[in-house]
Amino acid sequence: MVNEGNIDWVVAIVALLAGIAIGVLIRHFSGSERTTSQRLKQRLAETELELNGLRENVNTHFADVMTLAQNITRQSEELQTRLGTDAATMTSDPALKRQRQVDTPQESEEDTTALHIPRDYADSSGTLDESYGLRQKQESESKDPQPPRY
């Protein structure tokens, strides 16, 4: 009977050590997943901050480029105006003055060639008019009256 008692204690101690070993392994593997997920969350937050900074830089860049383009356009118009006025005042050759008058469009021409806002309707004589093409049919139908449709 002594051997049976010792075997019970040995089995209990081995089971206890096996349980501790299994618990340590489970803790080790589950803990590493937790730290890995924390690292990934931290990297994600860092990349989001970097992305937001880049977006802000791009927005600032495009605003600056648009301002510079507007300045260039304005300066180009000012230069063209100044060259025109200087050429008009300083040119003594009548042929150059006539050429300049031909090259610059008159204000009345600009009004006729100006672009108009497109309309979604036609004039009363247009093809989108409700009565377009019905006059001919009405004349032919007036000879043979049709019964009313209900």
Results as ranks from 00 to 15, higher is better:
E107V: 04
T36E: 01
R55E: 00
Y132H: 14
A69M: 05
R149A: 05
R135T: 06
I20E: 08
G5W: 03
W9Q: 06
A87V: 11
V14W: 04
N57D: 07
P147L: 00
Q136C: 09
N52G: 07
F62H: 14
D123Y: 04
A114Q: 02
G53S: 13
L79M: 15
T36R: 10
D86F: 15
I26V: 13
L83V: 00
I7G: 11
R27I: 03
M90F: 02
E130Q: 08
A12D: 10
G19V: 04
E77L: 09
T81R: 12
E141S: 04
R119Q: 09
L54G: 03
Y150W: 03
Q138F: 07
L128R: 15
D93N: 14
G133W: 02
S140M: 06
S37D: 14
T91R: 08
S125E: 08
V14H: 08
Q146R: 15
E109V: 07
L128A: 15
L115Y: 12
T112H: 02
P148E: 11
L134A: 10
K41P: 13
Y132F: 15
Q101S: 10
L128I: 11
S124Q: 03
D120G: 08
N6K: 11
E33W: 07
S30W: 06
A122M: 11
D8R: 07
L16S: 05
A95L: 15
K143Q: 13
L16G: 04
E139H: 04
R119D: 04
D123R: 12
S108T: 15
E78D: 10
E109Q: 07
D93T: 14
T36Q: 03
R100G: 07
R74W: 03
L115W: 08
G84A: 01
Q136G: 14
R74G: 06
Y132K: 14
T81E: 06
I20L: 12
D144P: 05
P105F: 01
H61W: 06
E107Y: 02
T36A: 04
D103N: 15
Q136F: 07
H61N: 03
R119M: 00
S124F: 01
S76G: 11
F29D: 03
L79K: 05
K97R: 10
R149H: 08
A18W: 12
V11N: 08
D93Y: 12
